[in-house]
Amino acid sequence: MTYPQPGPDPTRPYPPVSGVPGPYPPPVSGVPAPYPPVSGVARPYPPVSAVSYQPGGYGPPVQRIAVQAPLMSGMATASLVLGILGVLGGWCLFGLPCVLAVILGHVALRETRDGTRSGHGMAVAGLVLGYVFVGPMIAFTVMVFFGSIVGAATPTPTP
């Protein structure tokens, strides 16, 4: 069962929460009266102690701790850059960037293992790019060198 709520009252800006009338604390100038308690019994405000009081009514200031991010591994960055160079221009450089990306990627994984340095994902990306393209690059290099050797060693027929 609900109690009918009274209409708007110009002296109280907020209607009461419950239909049970109760004593209100005396109004402070410029501050609207708070809602009455649901049970209908007014309770006094909690006392303000000297320890918890701050100017403006706020609590104690919050302690903020700044944590520095771990340093980036340079080997991981170099591995990723060389892996990308191996993908884009490794055919012209005979797979050398891919081989260096694999070597530096393994060194970077060892650096980032304990968490003192960041860049584990870049090291893995450099390793993946290096391993995926190192096989075709080496095969291309072998074909170019052996093709040129075989072409130079084969006599040309004279007409």
Score class of each variant (00 low, 15 high):
P21I: 03
F133Q: 07
L96D: 06
G57A: 01
G83Y: 00
L80G: 02
R113I: 04
G151C: 01
P4D: 06
F140K: 05
F145W: 12
L96C: 09
V51S: 10
S52F: 02
Q63Y: 08
R110F: 10
P32Y: 02
Y131A: 13
I84L: 15
R113A: 15
M143K: 10
T154F: 00
G126C: 07
R64G: 01
L93T: 11
V31Y: 01
D114H: 12
A33L: 14
H120F: 11
H120C: 04
M137K: 05
H120L: 11
V81Q: 13
W91H: 08
L127A: 05
L96M: 13
E111F: 01
T11F: 01
P8K: 05
R64E: 13
P13F: 00
V20P: 02
G115K: 03
P155N: 00
P27V: 04
V62I: 12
S148G: 04
G147K: 01
P157N: 03
P16T: 02
P15R: 14
L93I: 08
R43F: 09
P60Y: 03
V124Y: 06
F140V: 01
P6R: 09
G7Q: 04
T154K: 02
L109D: 07
P6T: 02
R117Q: 15
V17C: 10
T158N: 11
S49D: 05
Y14T: 06
R43L: 14
A108V: 07
P155G: 04
D114M: 10
V128G: 08
V87C: 12
G74S: 10
F94S: 13
G90D: 12
L100D: 07
A33S: 13
V67A: 09
P15K: 08
F94M: 15
V81N: 10
S29P: 11
V150Y: 10
L71G: 12
G40W: 00
V41I: 14
L96R: 06
G90A: 11
V67P: 01
V28W: 06
V142M: 10
P159I: 05
T116F: 10
Y45L: 14
M143I: 08
G90R: 07
M1A: 10
Y131E: 11
F133I: 01
Q68N: 10
V38N: 06
I65H: 12
G40E: 01
L71A: 15
G56E: 02
Q5A: 13
S29A: 15
E111K: 11
P44S: 03
P46W: 01
A108Q: 08
T112A: 04
A78I: 00
G57I: 00
V134E: 08
R113L: 11
G59P: 04
V62G: 00
A139S: 09
L88M: 14
M122W: 09
